[in-house]
Amino acid sequence: MKKKIQNIEVSGIERLNEEHFLLNLYSKTNLPEILPGQFAQILIENSRTTFLRRPFSVHNISYSNNTITFLVQIVGDGTRSLSRLREGDMVSIVYPLGNSFTMGAEDNVLLVGGGCGVAPLLFLARYLYENGHKMTILIGGKTRKDILRIREYQKYGNVLITTEDGSLGEKGLVTQHPLLQAFDLEFDKIYTCGPELMMKAVGEMAKIRNIECEVSLERIMACGIGACLCCVIDTPDGNRCVCTEGPVFNVNELKW
């Protein structure tokens, strides 16, 4: 899959709440093939503290409209600057980067997302759905406002929610949801993305039950194309680049 650098038009910013927004980009030319789990490196201009590009996983795409959507949490000056883009502005992106989630013959899968870690899971859910997979989607957050894009996920499967303060869904951590506590999990495969501790816990649960599990890692990155070797994860095979050998890893490939 060929990577490219492109100046691409902002087709809109959709505010989801004070902390989260959707960045919609429109390409005048046909989009390259992009797979669920892949990401783009976006150049953020007009931010004094942001020097390098920032990696964002693809939240959704539309080949018919030539649009790509990113779900962004405002965490600092760079993401705030992105949130101030206007329709018609141009941004430079390098994409599509990284590997992707894999899809086999599994007919019943579980997606577990935490906070803004749900970002790549919508694209994945749609992809799985369109390929005839049945899925349950478990989403957790600190509080009600961290639970994002529920209606979108509901299009593709049964959605379960946890919040740490109990303001929506089950109270507690996503890993404490009764579904995951059951010993006999009826899933053929688990996909997860979110805070690393959450993914470790989910990975552990999957391993114990002998269920295949793929995790999407987040790392501080510079280049995104395997040149700088900054975004490594320590694995039994040595340090591996999350940007090119990931971001998706089978949990068995990690030292978790």
Partner: peptide, 23 residues
């Protein structure tokens, strides 16, 4: 060489620090 442990990079004002360690 395996290089140094993560984190290996810190963005700074108009630049970056790295400690890849010759991986």
């Amino acid at each position: 060489r395996e290089g140094n442990p993560y984190p290996r990079m810190a963005e700074t004002a108009s630049g970056m620090l790295n400690t890849v360690g010759l991986q």
